[in-house]
Design a protein around this nucleic acid. Structure first.
Lengths: 135, 135
DNA sequence: CCTTGATCTTCCAGTTGCTGGAAGCCCTAT
DNA sequence: ATAGGGCTTCCAGCAACTGGAAGATCAAGG
């Protein structure tokens, strides 16, 4: 299979597939004309990568997961550990965004949003706050 | 004021302040020796930038907000519009992360996490799903 | 056989928002 | 004079691609 077909089947852009080869996630063979020649296992790995990435795993996590996937003697604890680490990062990010969202939504609510210049959003950004326990 | 003091007062790294000058967010004067010389207004702007960034506004949003902040004839609607656009992006991001989190937490819950190789996390990543209405 | 257009190749640059480091000048204190 | 800190510039790198240029290859049509 050439890269175009693999891109169609895997749903990944050809550019991304080349990039994954560059960084050593996959190692497709080459035809005599220099074209990449993908086997079923390559396609399978790309699907794996696409799904792992869509769950937000970093490329390095994906590399580890792919390695564990190919290791018959893996311990599921190693996989679980990676997933839990990622889950913690997601939770931290959600918490951060939720805090931003709350402040932002409040400011937006307070802003008339008309032709006048008075704006509580700008007023808030203009003064320093303490990060502490305000109500 | 030199950059070190401004960094201390604003809480922003000196590198970041230089970067903000590079991209034209601030325009500190220069002393005769070539050092940046910050006025109160520069410090104020840097505080504004720090707070806007901490709410997750992009640099380009910050540029617009700073411009509106300095424009006595602004309409608060313009500020509100930027903030609302940003809020939508945050909401989209939260939704994306929450969906990831749900899938990931489920998989983690299903994984024994012991010395054995059987792992529902890897099993899930290994097969293609439809994005549709599964339960 | 030749041309056209799609597909493939490599390589370089750009994205976002900084951050680290090198090389070198300036300033103060001893 | 020298040591140290702070300041300057510029270049590289992070994550994970993405876009584009320049050129080879292939399949189909006239």
């Amino acid at each position: 299979m050439n890269i175009g077909q693999v891109a169609r089947l895997s749903g990944l852009p050809a550019k991304t597939i080349r990039y994954y080869e560059d960084i050593g996630l996959i190692r497709p063979q080459r035809s005599e004309n220099g074209y990449r020649s993908f086997r079923e296992t390559d396609l399978h790995k790309l699907g794996f990568l696409g799904r792992a990435r869509s769950l937000g795993f970093s490329i390095e996590d994906c590399r580890s997961l792919l390695e564990l996937y190919g290791d018959e003697d893996r311990a599921s604890a190693d996989v679980k550990s990676i997933a839990q680490g990622h889950l913690h990062k997601i939770d931290a990010k959600i918490a951060e965004l939720t805090a931003m969202r709350a402040t932002l939504a409040h400011l937006i609510h307070c802003c008339a949003g008309d032709h006048r210049p008075d704006c509580p959003i700008l007023a808030d950004l203009a003064v320093s706050h303490d990060t502490g326990s305000g109500e």
